[in-house]
Every structure is written in C-alpha cells, then in structure tokens.
Design a protein around this nucleic acid. Structure first.
Length: 599
RNA sequence: GGCCAUGUAGCUCAACGGAUAGAGCAUCAGCCUUCUAAGCUGGGGGUUGCAGGUUCGAUUCCUGCCAUGGUCACCA
C-alpha cells in the first residue's frame, strides 16, 4: 500500500462525493502534522471552501466524517481552523511498513527512455584541482546518480580545457627552468608538478613587467612587451600551426596532469563515461561559424572578426572569431555542444558550471538556436554558487586557494585522530582502519559541500567542516554504524529474528510516538528522490537523510529493540531499523558517501 | 549604469502560498550498572533587509527601494 497515494485517493473521493469537486491526485497536498497538534497528516481545506460553501470547520468535519466512514485508513480526525488533522490507525502503519519492506527498490523509478548527459568537472590542464572543482565534481556526480535512480539513462562527461595561452605558460616555464625534470624524477604528483611551473611563469612574468615599468613603460605596455609574454604567444602560435616539437611537449605535460587528475578523481570517487577535449572541439566550432556566415546568421566586420547580432534578444553583439581568425571561448563551446549531440542524441544536456558563467551559457543557447540547432532547448545550466572562504573569495594570487588533494589529506587525518580518541574500533585490521579514515574524511567534505542548495554560494569554514557533530556526514554514518552494531549484538547474544508479521503484534499494543514518526518520514523517500532529480539538487537528499538519522536516534534512545521481550515487536523494530539503515545507505550512496559498518 | 542571483536566530543552513518560521553549531542545564554518548532531553536566542500590493492566509508571488555577490572581454 502506497500510503500517501492511498490517502490522496480517499481525499479525492471525498471532494468528489461531498462537493462535486474533481481534482487530480497530484493536486492534493498532504503535510506532516505539526508537533503541537494531534494527528499524523494534515490536509488544508481552505482551497475547497468555495466548492463546499461551508465554513472551514464544517468543511473539515464533512471530509473527516466521510473518510472515517468510507476508508479504513483512519482512526480519527480533528479540525483546527481550516486544518484537518488526520490520525491513521495502527493497522495502516503496519500495512504501510509492509509495503516498504516488500519493495526493495522503494523509491526507484523504471527506465523512462530519456537520455541525459551531465557535463561536470571541466578542469584546466595547467593547475591541480581545488575546492571549487570539488563542489562541481560532487554535484555533477551526485546529480547523475540521482537521475539514474529516477529512470534516466545518464552519460557523465568531462570537458577538459587542454589548450590555450594558460597551458603555454606552464610549458614555457618548464622549458626555461626545469632542466628536464619530470614528476617521476621529482616524486611530485603530475598536476601539482605542472601547476608549479604555471606559478613560476606568473612570478617571473610579473618581475619582467616590473622591470619594464621601472624603465619607464606604462603598465599596459609592459604587460604586453614582457619577454615571456611575447614568447608564450609565439608558443601558442606554434601550437596552433601544429609544430611537432611543441605538440609533443604539450602532449607530454598534459599526460602528467591527467595522471594526477585521475588519481584525485579516483579518491574523490567520481568517474566519467566520456571525455571531451577542447583541443579537439574548437575546430568544429570554427566550422560552425563558417556555416553561420554562409547562411547569413553571422556577419563579418572590416577587420575580419565575426559577430552575431542578438539585439532581438536585447543582448549585445557577440564576437565569435577574432580578427586574426582564432577562436574564442564560446566558439569551442558551440563545437562541443554539436559534437555531444551527434555522439549521443540526448534529450537533456546538463552543464554543471559556476554561476559566474550564467551569461555565457545564455549566449551559447541563443546562438545555437539561431543556428537552428533544436537541441539547444535541451541544454540546462546547473548553475551553482562559488565557494567562498571566511576571508572572502579564493584567490590564486594570494595563495588562498584550497587545494583538493591537501584538503582530502587533512580531513582524512582528522578522521583518524577522532577514531583514535573515541577508540571504538578494536579488532579492526590496519587495512580496514585506513579504509574507514578515507570513508569518514571524504564523507565529511562531500556532505559539507552537498548539503547546501547548489544555486546558493557556499561558505567553506575549515573549522566547521572538521566538525563531526550535528548536521554532518559523521552523524549520519554513525547512525548507520549504530544500526549495524545492533544487528551484530543480536547475533552475538543469539537472538533469532524472523520476518516481521503484523498479525502477531499484540492487539492492545500502541506504537511509540518515535516509531510512528519514523515510519511517517520513511514514506516520503520516493517523493524526495523525485524532487531531487527534478530540481537537480543533491541537497534535498542530504537534508532528508539527516532528518532520517535524527529521527532514528530519537527512536533508538526511547524504544527498546533487543531488550524487547515480545518477539513480534522485537522483529518489527529490528526490521524498521534495518529499513532505516538501507535508506541511509542509499541516500549517502547517491551523495557519493559510503556507510561504514563500524566507526 | 543594464541584466541575474542572494538577503531568515550570534554563525552555517531548512521551510509544494498554510497553523505559534524549523535544524545544526555556539551557549546554559540535565541523561551512560540496558542495544555505539560521533548520541538523547530541555532552556535562552527572530519585526524572515525595508516599504507597499495580491488573498482566507506571504519567508515564499508582484512592484519599488536598500545591501552583498556575479556578469556585461578580440580572457577562459
């Protein structure tokens, strides 16, 4: 029995039979009854007063009476103003619990035949990953998994920004300063190795600019004429013309970076089905610009630069090719969008990109539409807020960027410290312990970054992220481990458990408040899972699973499980506990967080 | 300046247009001779940025202000 649906159907009949109102089941809204009122679910009758032509109280009691007479779900009702509080009878709760336990994939939806591509991560190959990438990665990965659970076929894609002036900067600094050093020879992780040369370029370049300024040049001129700026531009030209030596170096250094990235991705637990490289898509973009020119959708200025007029959309004209014929950021995005669609023909294409690019994606969609690409309508920008630190924005120049690898190390170390202090892991092997530290450390970061609504900016407070109390992954993982402990204990003291059978529950037994509240909450899982997909929001699941753990801990505190002497009741509570454990495990799993059996 | 977000307890965040706006952190007071105290119970803490409007009802929708952030590159 699908509880919420059953109640809605009863209400639907009530409105139809009493007031000749035809409403769809989806339009009927049920809320959890407030703490201070008596009841399980509440139905607001205000919207139906026009139909009933009665006072709120009389409308409510008419519906209440109808439900008691025509349905066996309810044991009573009360009305406060226009709020009809419904009380379910105990039989209904057991029936409902039966339905949940007999549906292993409770909440999952069958395949709907729709295909979605989720593009996320999108790193540059000149720097290691940082905290901003982490939010991006975790949102992208989690949304993908949530969509799968809701019946979509999902392609996880990564679009690597592997070309351009910034890559040339690391290359130049390496050529000038490295003496053929490699990640192997220095024992440094490849992405950090290359990133260091990027930093060294910037440092040296700034000095060169300063010298020129001291010699009397203006800042702008100095920035353009500094020796390394000229060299790096030359390097880019060589790269674009396909210089074999430069190309080989570019490939070699990018590979170092990829080796580093793959290591980080693996530790973060994110993966991709398809990799795109801007070095391969920018030419496609150029081709599309040519086509647009031929069709007269774009126009060329005297200096040979190519533009599109978007005045009908109240947007400024947008440049698509520079006067020297090279492509800009949006050019390659046009090419990538087309390639993606030709590869997969997906219904929806999700771009997980920070909100600083809202305007850019708007332009991208607009231009694709002008080119007659119908798939433009399927593009959805999952725009998330940037991660700020208590001191403000992360700035690479000021060295305030939080490095992903360092953060993971730090959090795992912190987890190790706490596990040690609490000393509950006696008998676990060294290998199991290391595994546990990873699960706890990574879980903490992921939960911290995912629990906030993606579209809001996120304040990363290092001290707070280390916390293991309250609204954290550890709190939820702890609840999971606690339930596991309960079952270990059960086996140890030799209590046999069998499937819960509601017929065996003593008739005079009343469910604890904590039991009813737990059941009532579990019923909402399918709704939350669906909402999370529709809103592309892992945060909804994070909030749900936190509340699940919170309610279970209350239950655990107040209700005896193993200590219960009545076998049927004990079995019911054990199975309820196991159901909660499974829901926690599934929710955390969709957030990319593992559920330890001990901690 | 135009456009777009955001503004809720000291702090970080919740709340399909519904009841006296909820959690966590911090703070104060309690609970381990019974299932993991990374837990539980209770207290204090609010003019939901401001002013209007829409209606049975607004944190939520509309308008105007104010504040913060983003963006409007031949950067990516």
């Amino acid at each position: 029995m699908h509880l919420l649906l059953s109640i809605r159907i009863s209400l639907q009949s009530a409105l139809r039979d009493l007031f000749s109102q035809n409403v769809t089941v989806d339009d009927l809204h049920l809320e959890i009854t407030n703490q201070e009122h008596v009841g399980d679910f509440t139905f607001v009758v205000f919207p139906y007063l026009r139909a009933s032509k009665l006072s709120p109280e009389k409308t409510g009691s008419a519906i209440g009476e109808y439900l008691l007479k025509n349905s066996n779900l309810f044991s009573g009702y009360n009305i406060v103003k226009g709020f009809l509080n419904l009380k379910l009878n105990q039989e209904t709760w057991f029936e409902c619990f039966n339905w949940i336990t007999k549906n292993p994939g409770f909440g999952n939806r069958n395949t709907n035949g729709k295909k979605v591509m989720v593009e996320y991560s999108a790193p540059n190959t000149n720097k290691p990953l940082h905290l901003g990438h982490m939010r991006n990665n975790f949102i992208g990965w989690s949304v993908s998994e949530i969509l799968k659970e809701n019946g979509y076929e999902v392609i996880k894609a990564n679009l690597v920004n592997d070309r351009g002036i910034h890559i040339c900067k690391s290359m130049l600094a390496w050529m000038e300063l490295a003496n053929d050093a490699t990640p192997e020879s220095t024992g440094k992780k490849g992405d950090h190795f290359v990133g260091d040369y990027y930093v060294r370029f910037e440092k040296e370049y700034r000095q060169q600019v300063e010298i020129l300024v001291a010699q009397g040049k203006s800042q702008t001129v100095a920035e353009k004429e500094a020796p390394w700026m000229l060299s790096v531009q030359e390097l880019l030209r060589k790269w674009e013309s396909g210089d074999t030596e430069i190309f080989a170096l570019w490939k070699k250094m990018n590979q170092w970076v990829y080796d580093g990235f793959n290591h980080s991705y693996k530790r973060m637990g994110v993966d991709f089905d398809k990799w795109y490289y801007e070095s391969e898509t920018y030419l496609l973009g150029k081709k599309m610009v040519e086509e647009g020119l031929e069709k007269g959708i774009f126009y060329k200025k005297d200096d040979n630069s190519v533009w599109i007029n978007l005045s009908d959309l109240k947007l400024d004209d947008k440049l698509l090719l520079r006067s020297d014929g090279t492509s800009v950021y949006i050019t390659q995005d046009l090419g990538t969008a087309d390639l993606k669609y030709n590869d997969y023909g997906m219904d929806v294409s999700v771009y997980v990109i920070a909100d600083e690019q809202n305007h850019h994606i708007k332009l991208l969609k607009a231009i694709l539409k002008k080119l007659g690409k119908h798939y433009a309508d399927g593009i959805y920008h999952l725009s998330y807020g940037m991660v700020d630190l208590p001191e403000g924005k992360m700035k690479s120049r000021e060295g305030t960027v939080v490095d992903a690898d360092e953060l993971m190390d730090e959090m795992v170390k912190e987890a190790e410290k706490t596990v040690h202090e609490l000393g509950k892991t006696e008998g676990m092997s060294q290998e199991e312990l290391f595994r546990l530290y990873e699960i706890l450390g990574l879980g903490a970061i992921k939960y911290f970054l995912l629990k906030v609504d993606p579209k809001k900016k996120l304040l990363f407070n290092p001290a707070e992220s280390l916390d293991l109390k309250g609204n954290t992954a550890a709190f939820i993982q702890y609840t999971h481990a606690r339930i596991c402990a309960l079952f270990r204990k059960k086996d140890k003291i030799g209590i046999s458990s069998s499937e819960f059978q509601k017929e065996k529950i003593p008739l005079n037994h009343l469910l604890f408040k904590e039991e009813r509240e737990m059941l009532r909450w579990l019923v909402y899982y399918p709704t939350v899972l669906q909402d999370a997909a529709e809103q592309y929001s892992p945060a909804l699941l994070a909030n749900y699973v936190f509340e699940t753990a919170r309610l279970y801990n209350k239950f655990y505190q107040e209700v005896p499980v193993l200590v219960e002497t009545d076998e049927a009741l004990r079995n019911f509570r054990l199975e309820l506990s196991d159901t909660v454990r499974k829901i926690i495990c599934r929710c955390l799993g969709l957030l990319g967080i593992e559920s330890p059996e001990r901690m």
